[in-house]
């Protein structure tokens, strides 16, 4: 932060809870893009760089990176209480909604028109996931070695159905070596 930046507001614990509650409830299609928008652009609690670094660390650790990031942001402003409030709010609201949806599915999931609608949404969601992977690949522009690591992960998990620990732990050293090589070459 340079001297000329206006001071960044520091959220209260309630702010943190309410804001993460909002992020959870508006976070369609995954949380990360929404969290950045709210925390960096709307609330200005974090700079873009700070948020990216937090998310990057969340990515390296196991677990959903949006959750890891929420824990670190909560901890940063309000210690242990914040680290519970932020992810608790982010999961709480959507979880209540999801329980409602699950009850709906139990009650009406076998009704033909509901089944048909869900089959259509399921087909679209499958495409959405594949399209997301394609888009991420295009944005990352991985060098050939990293692209190969990604493709091996796809084939190993998607076609050969190898267990996830094998795929992740087996490929991580190659991914990291390839990344190191790529960053040195620059």
């Amino acid at each position: 932060m340079s001297e000329t930046d206006p001071p960044r507001p520091v959220p209260t614990l309630l702010d943190l809870f309410l804001t993460y509650g909002k992020i959870g409830l508006i976070g369609f299609g995954g949380i990360n893009a929404w969290a950045r928008r709210v925390l960096v652009e709307e609330k200005r609690w974090l700079t873009d760089q700070e948020y990216a670094e937090t998310l990057g660390l969340g990515q390296v650790l196991p677990g959903p990176n949006a959750l890891n990031a929420a824990i670190m942001v909560g901890d940063r402003f309000h210690g242990t209480a914040g680290a519970i409030a932020a992810p608790g709010a982010m999961f709480g609201g959507p979880l209540i909604l999801l329980a409602g949806l699950a009850m709906f599915y139990d009650a009406y999931g076998e009704v033909p028109v509901v089944k048909a609608i869900l089959a259509g949404v399921a087909a679209a969601a499958a495409g959405m996931v594949i399209g997301t992977a394609a888009k991420m690949t295009q944005k990352l522009k991985p060098p050939p070695a990293l692209l190969a690591v990604g493709l091996v992960a796809l084939v190993a998990a998607g076609v050969f159905r190898l267990p996830l620990p094998w795929v992740v732990l087996g490929l991580a050293p190659f991914g990291i070596l390839a990344a190191r090589h790529a960053m040195r070459a620059k």
Partner: peptide, 26 residues
């Protein structure tokens, strides 16, 4: 940063694999 960059392609590959499995199911 190196670890992150090395893990991201694995994550993307796994996301694509998820799409494949969902497509097969639907």
């Amino acid at each position: 940063r190196i670890a992150e960059r090395g893990l991201v392609p694995i994550a993307v590959g796994l996301i694509a694999a998820s799409g494949l499995i969902l497509a097969r199911g639907s």
